[in-house]
Computed example of a mutant assay.
Amino acid sequence: MRKRRARHTGRFLQTVIYLGKLFRMFLFQNDWKVLPMSAIIAGLVAFSVGQNLYKTMEGTLMGSFAVSCICIWNGFFNSIQVICRERAIVKRDHRSGLHITSYVAAHMIYQAVLCIAQAIIIIFIFSSMNVQMPAKSLITNWPLVDVGITLFLITYCADMLALLISASARTTTSAMTVMPFVLIVQLLFSGAFFNLPKQAMPFTNLTATKWGLTALCAQGDYNSLPMVSIWNNALKMKNVEIDGQKPLLEIFKYIEDNDMRDDILIKTAQQNQNEEYAFSKDVVYKCWNCLIIWTLIYVFIAVVILEFIDKDKR
């Protein structure tokens, strides 16, 4: 009787049924723990790198990378085990009439809700800890909404990649074994934070980290911020003596006496601007589109893999 009913259950109803199951698991099987974990990680990052976020070029680049890492981490842990832990059940239900598209759609909706909640948590934690956020918006009328959309898309893209891994893995152990490798690739090929050889740069386009970091820098108007690292490093040499004199110390005194420090920081920043981080709608839309495209690719591959789950003899 059960098999007969399953075969005549439509895709929409199956989606609703599995969606209800996922939310029950959220409440009764401790899946809700991903939310407080997101808050803790956001708090640690805000405490560590939030001081200079959207205040200096270096602080914005480092902070945007760290925020992207939060999103990638959240997305991976949301779904890395959700399919492989019930692989036998999925195989049985598929033979009984389960539509894989309905099953994956339920996961997509459920994971989207989690990712939205995590994006809101990050913004709330950062705001509570007085981390400066972008003051200008590009897409909507509210800068925090723009940033929130970016955080959601990064998290959701990573989430769907983890869902793909979970659909491919035989057990939760194998999924968790693969996850650190994929996480390292996402972080290493961010495209900006690490100095990669030119031959490796095309691979950065394959990562959610690159597009998330770029969008966050653009939304923070990276190119209009001062650069302080060159000044700070030069300042360390102010007491260096040459022929019994300290020429750099005299220069620094002259600069400070004439209130020229900020002008020099701006001039230094102008020489280190990056067109990829331009404060432009086109840049943000491009990043959002790439994140959406990769998300859809991951979902499509996951569906294809699960469609052949009956033939899996592992």
Rank of each mutant, 00 (worst) to 15 (best):
R5D: 00
G10E: 11
I17N: 12
Y18W: 13
F23Q: 07
R24M: 04
L35G: 03
I40Q: 07
G43D: 06
G43N: 10
G43R: 05
V45N: 03
A46G: 15
F47A: 14
S48D: 02
G50W: 01
G50Q: 03
Q51I: 02
Q51Y: 09
Q51H: 09
N52L: 09
L53Q: 05
Y54C: 05
A66L: 06
G75V: 06
F77L: 13
A88Y: 03
A88V: 00
V90N: 00
K91Q: 03
R95M: 00
I100K: 00
Y110I: 08
Q111W: 09
Q111M: 13
A112K: 12
A112L: 12
A117M: 13
Q118H: 11
I123P: 05
M133C: 10
A135K: 02
A135R: 01
A135W: 00
N141Q: 14
N141D: 15
P143M: 04
L144T: 01
L144P: 04
A162S: 14
L164H: 06
L164T: 10
I165R: 04
S166R: 06
R170V: 01
A175L: 13
V178F: 15
P180G: 12
V182P: 11
L183A: 15
L188D: 03
G191S: 07
G191I: 05
A192M: 02
A200I: 13
A200N: 05
M201D: 06
M201W: 05
A208M: 12
T214E: 05
Q219S: 11
Q219E: 08
D221L: 01
M237G: 07
N239I: 10
V240T: 14
E241H: 12
E241Q: 11
I242P: 08
D243A: 15
Q245W: 13
L249R: 06
L249G: 11
F252A: 13
D257A: 14
M260H: 06
R261Q: 14
R261M: 11
L265T: 11
T268R: 03
A269G: 09
Q273F: 08
K281H: 08
V284G: 07
Y285G: 03
Y285L: 10
K286A: 08
C287Q: 10
I292K: 10
V299N: 04
A302G: 09
V303R: 04
L306W: 00
E307M: 05
F308Q: 03
F308T: 01
I309R: 02
